[in-house]
Amino acid sequence: MNGFSASSPRWRLKTPSVLPGFGLTLGFSLAYLTLIILIPLSGLVWRTASLSAPEFLAILADPRTLNALKISFGTALAAALINVVFGCVVTWVIVRYDFPGRRIVDALVDLPFALPTAVAGISLAALYAPNGWIGHILGLAGIKAAFNPTGIVIALVFIGLPFVVRTVQPVMEELDREVEEAAATLGANRLQTIGRILLPGLAPAILTGFALSFARGVGEYGSVIFIAGNIPYVSEIAPLLIVIRLEEFNYAAATAIATIMLCISFAMLLVINLIQTWSRRRYGHGA
């Protein structure tokens, strides 16, 4: 055994390969990524850094900002919770039950991914406004479903649904029937099997779907502004406030709000990653 083969710890960017084109493709990718994503985003960071701490805090302490953030996060949270509950029911029905048109229903779930947000926005507004089909019926029950926070929640439910379904679906499809049968042989009724065996097994995927739906809801703009009514302090979301501040050429305020939202989004991403790592370690499968 000579000393060369095992112990030549020369630093290498890449493991040797016979395939060509590494330099070209990686170089192009990095350049493009830098130009399109990194430079613009670092502009935001640079702008934020140039704000003094008191300036930054003053913008955040503005009641209108605080309210907008509260409304954005509150409605996104409510919508994500609704989506978790109904998203799981929808996924269960798609995965477990056989009915005519199952494929169509399955495909329909992706509609919010494909339908432009502005189109969804005006359509939801038309439906849920007091004179719309659904809004009219809800109005008879004394419920106002548009031009208030309820309207925002409705739009965010629309936007967030596929995130829950598409995250939970693959895990639900791979649930082991034997495990359910095992629970039954041990005397568990169907409700006990679902509550104590199936749901805990799906929990990591459900949490991930919740986080994705929530994160998307916080940043959503197009589908919300038509149905929200956009009343300051009541139904004005944070992304809209950024737009308003920009139109006032108040770049500092727009930047500060954007930074806060970005930080929270990244925190959410981190949480999602932690859930998946934890789940993989504990149960031997990801979410």
Partner: peptide, 14 residues
């Protein structure tokens, strides 16, 4: 994971 509004904002800032 970036709000579309923020995606626009970064170019306004730039």
């Amino acid at each position: 994971s970036v709000s579309p509004v923020i995606s626009g904002l970064v170019y306004v800032l730039l």
